[in-house]
Amino acid sequence: MNQQTAELANPVRHFHVRLSPTPRGARLARLLGVEQLRSWGLPLDPARQIIAELAVNAATHGRVPGRDFRLTLHVVAGTLRIEVTDTRGDEPPRRRPASADPGAESGRGLVLVEALADRWGVSDGRFPRKTVWAEVRLSAPEPTF
């Protein structure tokens, strides 16, 4: 396989969108992310849930009035990287232990991300930004109809 054939077999893909840090913005992040994955012919799960959790966290905990959050999807060499950047760099995400409060209705987002992603973490950006990211190894593309 020559270099050009390898690049066609594993193209580099990139998508990003800025959204309002609201419940509607978080929902749009999930919907737009899923549509982008679908258009690339990539598996939707577990990425759909990871996008949803990270976007809700950005809209809930990373919210600064008047400042958007950004969803970015990168595909490189068979790995999907999901990034959500918000403007609360002073508030690092905290993963709560699943047993902390079994009756709680929230607080398990990063536990889910950790379980679904192959890797995840947080990167500091230019102040006041932070990016929470997750990586998922991709299986064979889904057939398109």
Rank of each mutant, 00 (worst) to 15 (best):
V111R: 14
G125P: 04
A100L: 06
E83G: 05
A100S: 02
P93A: 09
V132G: 13
S99D: 06
T85S: 13
E91I: 09
V113P: 09
A115D: 10
E114F: 02
F127W: 14
D118S: 13
D90F: 11
G107N: 05
G103Y: 10
E83F: 04
T87S: 15
G121F: 13
P128Q: 07
G103E: 06
T85D: 03
D124Q: 10
P128F: 08
W120F: 14
V122R: 15
P128R: 08
R108T: 04
P92F: 15
P93Y: 10
S99V: 01
G107E: 01
D90R: 09
G121K: 13
G121T: 02
L110V: 00
S99I: 01
S99H: 12
W120A: 12
T131P: 05
A100M: 03
G109V: 00
V136H: 14
R95S: 04
G109E: 00
F127I: 00
P128A: 07
G107M: 03
V136S: 12
S106C: 03
G109Y: 07
V136L: 11
A134E: 04
G125T: 02
A100G: 01
L110G: 02
E91S: 11
R94D: 03
V111P: 00
E83I: 00
R108E: 01
V122S: 04
E83T: 02
E105Y: 15
L112F: 15
W133T: 01
S106K: 07
R96G: 02
D86V: 01
T131W: 08
R126C: 01
G125N: 08
R126F: 04
L112M: 11
T85L: 06
E135F: 12
L116E: 13
E83S: 11
P102H: 09
D124K: 11
A117W: 13
G109I: 01
A134K: 14
T87Q: 14
G107V: 00
S123C: 07
P128K: 11
P92L: 13
R88E: 06
R94M: 05
S106I: 02
G109H: 07
R108G: 05
R95Q: 07
W133I: 00
S106L: 04
E135Y: 12
R129A: 02
W133M: 09
G107Q: 06
A115T: 11
L112K: 11
S99N: 06
P93M: 04
R95F: 03
E135K: 12
V122F: 11
R129Y: 08
E91F: 14
D86R: 09
S99F: 10
E114C: 05
D101C: 03
G89L: 04
R95G: 01
V132T: 14
R126K: 12
V113S: 14
R95C: 01
D124W: 05
V113H: 14
P102S: 08
E105Q: 08
A134T: 07
G121D: 03
R126D: 02
R88S: 10
P92E: 05
G125I: 04
D86Y: 12
L110N: 04
